[in-house]
Design a protein around this nucleic acid. Structure first.
Lengths: 145, 145
DNA sequence: GCGGCGAATGATACTGAGTCTCAGTATCAG
DNA sequence: CTGATACTGAGACTCAGTATCATTCGCCGC
């Protein structure tokens, strides 16, 4: 839940207004504990009894993303999802069962990108690494009892 | 252009019918020389004067994908794109300027995935690595004349 | 505490990618 | 050639995401 605070702090710190709807979206994001989609947030809002316009949710997510406190990931199924994160470069491991995500500090992919650049002649500017698997909890559940 | 042959061969080899529309889609894919989107193929077909139903294009792409001769990638902009490839595990470097893509044989990401697994406790089953940059040709063009 | 300005909101209409259906057609085996 | 059936395509449909714009609200100065 302190995650919501982080999101709001980022808002204030960048000269954006801290409004009611944004506060709500921040809470929703913080309450997701993993990857979430825009549509998911929308229905979460409805389920929570609060009303926030669709456009506002999209705008809020977009804003959080531009502030670096939320990051876009593409699920294997092709959906556009997001995960809250603590900024700076890192990647995510996403549980395909429960959707929870964990951040992974740089594991040497920069070097890997350089290798690719050298090998192909490309100037590699950007990369996206997403890992999918089963989180410890779900493994425990899956492995009988 | 031999790429179209590869696609069609994969079709035949898997017990699927080699039909006119599929042939057309294969040609279109082969003629893209890089990443392409379903919509792009559709308009390419229209531009080429041939007519293939939207549904058919989507189905053909899906089929090629399931045969492993075409792979899905997600562009930084969030579009769903595809690239033709020669199957088995590898990754792509995609030029953000011209869209051309190059395959990269495994560069040690398996090890990287294992490291992540060890560090997070996740059982990493799947990963997606996409590299974006500027290809040699575009670099040349960009760097004055 | 009050007022004004501009940012933010949200209802709604719109866009466009991707899916589904189903009658008609084309492919391939026999 | 013929039948079984896989494939096709027109078009309706769904639904995520965007654009519009009048109204509201947060913030800042007073």
């Amino acid at each position: 839940m302190t995650a919501a605070t982080t999101l709001l702090a980022a808002l204030e710190g960048s000269g954006h207004r801290t409004t009611g709807p944004r506060r709500i979206v921040a809470e929703l994001v913080a309450g997701q504990d993993g990857a979430f989609t825009a549509v998911g947030l929308e229905s979460a809002a409805r389920a929570g009894g609060v009303h926030v316009g669709r456009a506002t949710i999209f705008r809020a997510i977009e804003l959080f993303e531009s502030l670096g406190v939320v990051e876009r990931v593409d699920l294997p199924a092709g959906d556009h999802a997001y995960v809250a994160c603590v900024s700076h470069h890192h990647h995510h491991v996403i549980c395909t069962t429960c959707g929870r995500s964990t951040e992974v500090e740089d594991v040497g992919i920069e070097a890997l990108a350089r290798t690719v650049g050298r090998r192909t002649g490309f100037r590699v500017d950007e990369h996206r690494l997403e890992l999918f698997g089963i989180c410890p909890d779900c493994q425990r559940v899956a492995s009988g009892t």
